[in-house]
């Protein structure tokens, strides 16, 4: 009898680290760049190297393998280094830049929205722009003494302001498995891709991650739970909340289907529509604030294209329409919660 192969498990940060490492080995034109992505820059001669590795430690150890020419700690200059990535991508490199938190996107929004996203179109298709922007987002959203606790300028989600831009692909992994596959897909893509990495996925994301490189395709959603009564649709950490809600609802004989969007733009509209045509109900869960959000965009698309298939009004569960508060109690109230999802479904089921 054959020995059962041990299934290797990784958590979120290490799976992204493995993706970066394997792609850097495969292609010498892949570089990584950002603030403190290695840490202690230029101090190797004092014995200091690789002091931090970014908020997820996703870049830890890369400098010792690939050196400071390809693992580039930058000054605090988001406009400058994201712009430099645009120039590097136009001239033969495949840069992966880390914007430490998505809240800092305002510092480099021109280079993302006006430059990276539009260059291919403005030049009539005559240029490729293979660059990746990795950025951390999200709140912890529970009532522990310390929530995320990073307040209004270090806890946002903000993916709607990225998904809004034509030409920019936006992906949101939810597990260690799809984090590795989407990161590799993003690096191999010839256009600009933003990868949003949730800061507090923790054990929820941990799971089997194959050791060999693989791609999770951009633009394809994943039906992570099959169901017949209602479609729950989310991304990132919210997918896990939907799965938790589905488990509670199952005890009430409500069978929820859960779609993990994985890519916000270009959105896999077809998977959502097909699901809604079977379940006839839709709840969209979104960690971002509600105005001009993914939640309302998806609701509008389904209302336009599958209205006759709906048995109940579409519901959205989003973050509060407020800045992110500091206090753990308030932060938990700000963030979408499982009980809100359950309540929305119960209301739909009448």
């Amino acid at each position: 009898m054959k020995e059962p192969t041990a299934v290797r498990e990784l958590s979120f940060g290490p799976s992204i680290n493995e993706a970066l490492r394997q792609e850097m080995r495969r292609d010498p034109n892949v570089i990584v760049m950002g603030e403190d992505i290695a840490g202690a820059a230029g101090r190797a001669h004092l014995g200091f190297i690789d002091a931090w590795g970014g908020p997820m430690r996703a870049t830890r150890g890369l400098i010792t393998e690939f050196g400071p020419e390809r693992v580039i700690d930058t000054p605090i200059s988001e406009m400058g280094f994201v712009g430099a990535a645009v120039g590097a991508a136009m001239t033969g490199l495949r840069p992966v830049v880390e914007v430490m938190f998505v809240d800092l996107i305002g510092m480099c929004y021109d280079q993302i929205a006006n430059q990276a996203a539009k260059m291919h179109y403005m030049m009539g298709g005559h240029v490729k722009l293979p660059m990746v922007i990795r950025t951390a987002y999200g709140t912890r959203g529970d009532k522990r003494a310390y929530g995320g606790g990073a307040a209004a300028q270090h806890s946002q989600t903000l993916y709607s302001v990225l998904a809004h831009i034509p030409g920019l692909k936006v992906v949101v992994p939810s597990t260690a498995y799809n984090a590795k596959g989407l990161t590799i897909a993003a690096i191999r893509d010839d256009g600009p891709v933003v990868v949003l990495e949730h800061k507090f996925l923790g054990l929820q994301a941990k799971g089997h991650v194959p050791e060999e490189p693989y791609v999770v395709p951009i633009g394809k959603a994943d039906v992570v739970r099959q169901g017949t009564h209602v479609t729950l649709c989310a991304a990132g950490r919210m997918t896990h909340l939907c799965l938790d809600a589905a488990q509670v609802l199952a005890a009430e004989q409500i069978n929820a289907e859960v779609i993990d969007l994985l890519t916000l733009n270009p959105l896999d509209e077809e998977t959502i529509l097909q699901s809604v045509r079977r379940t006839h109900r839709l709840v969209v869960v979104d960690e971002d604030t509600p105005v001009c959000s993914m939640a309302r965009d998806i609701a509008a698309r389904v209302a336009e294209k599958a209205f006759d298939d709906l048995d109940a009004p579409i519901k959205t569960v989003t973050a509060a329409d407020t800045p992110v508060p500091f206090s753990a109690v308030l932060e938990a109230l700000y963030t979408p919660r499982v009980e809100q999802i359950i309540a929305a479904v119960r209301e739909q089921m009448g």
């Binding site: 645009v86 120039g87 001239t91 021109d110 280079q111």
Partner: peptide
């Protein structure tokens, strides 16, 4: 000023390559 960053990226690219 946006293009200035692209030139710096091209310079970085030339150095790495």
């Amino acid at each position: 000023g946006a293009g200035v960053a692209h030139a710096v990226g091209a310079g970085l690219s030339a150095k790495v390559r």
